[in-house]
Design a protein around this nucleic acid. Structure first.
Lengths: 173, 173
DNA sequence: TCGTTCATGTAAGACGTTACATGATTGT
DNA sequence: ACAATCATGTAACGTCTTACATGAACGA
């Protein structure tokens, strides 16, 4: 009972509208994949737990055993509590940066290669987000404003990374 | 056998110089805490595994059961392989950003409060890094160049976050 | 002598990943 | 008929956190 972010991610999606586990898997892929990836296995398991805890209920059953879940008042209260009262854990683990500490174990040329790779990967990731941004109709649904704010973070993040990697190369030289 | 970053973090520190588990716990706190936190429990467990795998050896034993570990050629080869051949996993899970997707479940005023809190927390974190930066003698040890490059990343990261949060508030309004 | 620091280890439980397993329904 | 998609679930394994447990050595 420490992390529980997946729990609240599911509540957040169900607060928008009811959905089945199968629906939620796809909604994760579409919108949350970049900030909180989750597997099929994890989602089904967590939905069962949430139903047991009374935060969601099976509101409808369809063909092929489909179960549609709806958020309960208790679930909504939990979501709102998490959003307003619980401080988000700052990001810590960063594999990319961890390696930077050990660049001494490489030759200067190898270190430069590492940083150059980071630079171009950031550039590629940024380009991908820009493509995504222009492909989406940002006026369509209520999620879109928030989704756009999150995407803007990504753009700034990759731009920052790219510039930093370029700067870092000069430090190593 | 998927993550293994702790394994390589330990190898990286031991590549600099031999150390005991106890030493490594403190070195983690000093230098790696912000990029790859590890607990006492985890470190001792992993050192035993690394010794069993032949990547490190007990090179000395001291009072109070102290065991000093030294990296082996096999361990160094593994470290270098990890640094040059294994692509670092990009950061994904971001609790702060996850919440942004669900800001609709709050009132506009509450959403603004959330973003304002992010902004001031980023500002505080940046100030802390700037203090740290001026307190350290960056010419002292070989780790310092790399440590400084990592710290610069942190500065840019928090600055970016702060500016983004400010921008995001205007979007919500 | 007595508190602090040094020093190592184990156990329980949450969370995450990968793989396995099954089957109904729909469209061609 | 057959393939693709819809749809849900379990098992094994690895990592991470928290807590428990123990004791030697040092300094005042």
């Amino acid at each position: 009972m420490m992390g529980m972010s997946l729990r609240h991610a599911l509540l957040g999606l169900l607060a928008d509208r009811p959905a089945s586990g199968y629906d939620l898997i796809h909604r994760f892929k579409e919108s949350l994949a970049n900030v909180w990836p989750a597997t099929q296995s994890q989602i089904y398991t967590e939905l069962t737990k949430l139903a047991d805890a009374g935060e969601i209920t099976v509101s409808d059953e369809g063909p092929r055993g489909r179960k549609e879940y709806t958020i309960t008042p208790a679930g909504l209260a939990d979501l709102r509590h998490w959003l307003t009262e619980v401080a988000p854990k700052p990001i810590t683990r960063n594999e990319t940066l961890l390696r930077v500490f050990f660049l001494d174990a490489l030759t200067p040329a190898e270190a430069i290669t590492y940083l150059t790779t980071l630079e171009s990967r950031s550039a590629a990731a940024l380009a991908e987000l820009l493509t995504l941004e222009s492909a989406i109709d940002w006026t369509a649904n209520p999620f879109s404003t928030n989704g756009h704010i999150a995407l803007e973070w990504g753009k700034r993040f990759y731009r920052m990374n790219q510039e930093w990697a370029e700067w870092a190369k000069q430090q190593v030289t």
